[in-house]
Structure formats: structure tokens, C-alpha cells
Amino acid sequence: MTIHIGAAPGQIAETVLMPGDPYRARWAAETFLDGAELVNEVRGMLGFTGTYRGNRVSIQGSGMGMPSLSIYANELIRDYGVKTLIRVGSIGGMQPQVKVRDVIIAMTCTTVATPSSTIFRDLNYSPCADYGLLEAAVAATRKRDVGVHVGGIYSSDTFYDERPDLNEQMTRHGILGVEMEAAELYTLAARHGVRALGIMTVSDHLQTGEALPSDQREKTFGDMIEIALEAAFA
């Protein structure tokens, strides 16, 4: 048990999927895992453990933004011995070829700052995905009729962004989409020598203004969850 996670020792698997929304964690656990059991509900941040095709896996909500994810990822790695963490969540598209409902697999994460930024001082550290997980995720997408994009994304702690000039530069430099957690996850994984990957579904688009209605998101996000699970145990 930690300050933010109430699971007992042994209740969390070495592989953890991390959606931001705790209710999405519950939906994913009930939909895709066998024998899913609630192992954490501290502060309403739900976590579940079950099996996927005989492999033990946990799904733990991370909350919104890098500071919140940093808390849960640190405790999962340091106190529960987690070896593989995969962020699954929504992302805003930034390129014309990226469509709503497509899946983005993040190779790298650009960011202005993360909770880890202060330890690097003048260094612009470039966090990236675990290649083995990334390769396995790309292979898993070939079995599905879903648009897939692999490349760089932008992680921001500002949801209501008032910097259109920054978004213009991200688009200009090929950034596929913007979300709020992956850069810190990749940085922590590198620091602690574990595996991390971000697989996100495009829920809205910054250029076109199109957005996926909330009642359609769970069904659409199913591909992302299955890709993540298959990649974790490839």
C-alpha cells in the first residue's frame, strides 16, 4: 500500500495499462479481462487486476496530466515492481492525414516541461517509447481495420491552450497529436529501466474541429485496448 494506491503487495501485475479516466479503467477491465478484481479505489482512482489470455495484467487510472500520472507511475514502479506500463487514452489530432477514431502510437514525445524537467537543467531530454513494445503494437494493428499512425506526439499540461503559435509549430514539424501524459511516462520508464508505450485514440481534431461524441468513445477505444494488450504479451 502506498499513499495513492491501496492495493496490497502482489495485487498489481507486472504489466499495467494506464488510462487517464478511472471509469475507463473499469470499463476496460470488465470488457477485456477475465476475473477482473478491484484492487484500488483511493481518491476514486480505480485500479483492477485480471488476466488476458492467461496473462496477468492490471489497469490503473492515472488521472489527467503529467503530475498526476507521475505519482501513479512512480508508485507502481518503485513499490509494486511494475515492469511494463502502457498509456491508453485519447489524443487530439494535429495532421490532416490523422482522422478521428484513428490510433496513434507514440514513438517520441515532445513537451515544454514535465515534472522531471528540473533534474535535467539545461538539457532538452527526448523521451521515447520502448522499441519492442512499439514494434509489437504496430504488428497488432495489422489485424484490424483501423487507421494507424506512428511517430512523434506532443504532451502538454495545458488543456485550454492559448498558444496557437505553438500548435502551428507542432503541426509544421510533423507532430501527430497532442495529449497530456506520455512524455512523463516515457521519462520515468527510462529512469527506472522499465518498458513504456503510449497508444492513443484520436477523439478530436485541432485543425478540423471534429470531435467524437462521448457516448461513442468507449466502443471506438476498444481497438486501442486490444492493441495494447497484444503488444504487452507478444
Rank of each mutant, 00 (worst) to 15 (best):
T2H: 07
I3T: 11
H4E: 05
I5A: 05
A7L: 09
A7E: 12
Q11Y: 08
Q11S: 12
T15H: 10
P19Q: 04
P22S: 04
Y23C: 06
R24G: 08
A25T: 07
A29Y: 00
F32R: 01
L33H: 02
D34A: 06
G35K: 09
N40K: 09
N40G: 05
L46M: 13
F48Y: 15
Y52S: 02
R56P: 02
V57F: 06
Q60L: 11
G63W: 00
G63T: 05
M64L: 14
G65H: 10
M66F: 10
P67F: 13
I71K: 08
A73F: 08
E75P: 14
Y80F: 15
Y80I: 07
G81K: 07
L85H: 00
R87E: 10
V88Q: 06
S90H: 02
Q95E: 10
V98A: 13
V98G: 11
V98T: 09
D102W: 10
I105M: 04
I105K: 05
I105F: 02
A106F: 03
M107S: 09
C109M: 11
T110M: 04
V112C: 01
A113T: 10
T114P: 08
P115E: 04
P115R: 06
T118W: 02
R121D: 09
R121G: 05
R121Q: 14
L123I: 15
Y125P: 00
P127W: 03
C128E: 01
D130T: 13
D130S: 14
D130Y: 03
G132D: 15
G132P: 00
L133P: 01
L134F: 06
L134Y: 10
A140H: 04
R142K: 15
R142Q: 14
R144M: 14
D145P: 00
D145S: 12
G147W: 07
G147V: 03
H149Y: 02
H149K: 05
G151R: 08
G151N: 12
I153M: 12
I153E: 00
Y154P: 01
Y154T: 00
D157V: 13
D157S: 06
T158G: 01
F159D: 07
F159V: 13
Y160K: 07
D161M: 13
R163T: 12
P164A: 03
N167H: 10
N167E: 08
E168D: 15
M170W: 15
T171I: 14
H173M: 09
G174K: 06
I175H: 13
G177D: 00
V178L: 10
M180I: 11
E181F: 09
A182I: 09
A183L: 09
E184W: 01
L185Q: 13
L185E: 11
T187Q: 13
T187G: 05
A190H: 15
H192C: 03
G193Q: 09
R195A: 11
A196E: 10
G198V: 01
G198P: 02
I199G: 07
I199S: 04
M200I: 00
M200W: 01
D204M: 06
H205K: 03
T208E: 06
T208L: 06
E210T: 11
A211I: 12
A211K: 14
A211S: 14
L212M: 15
L212N: 03
P213W: 04
S214I: 14
D215E: 12
Q216H: 12
F221C: 01
M224H: 00
I225S: 01
E230N: 14
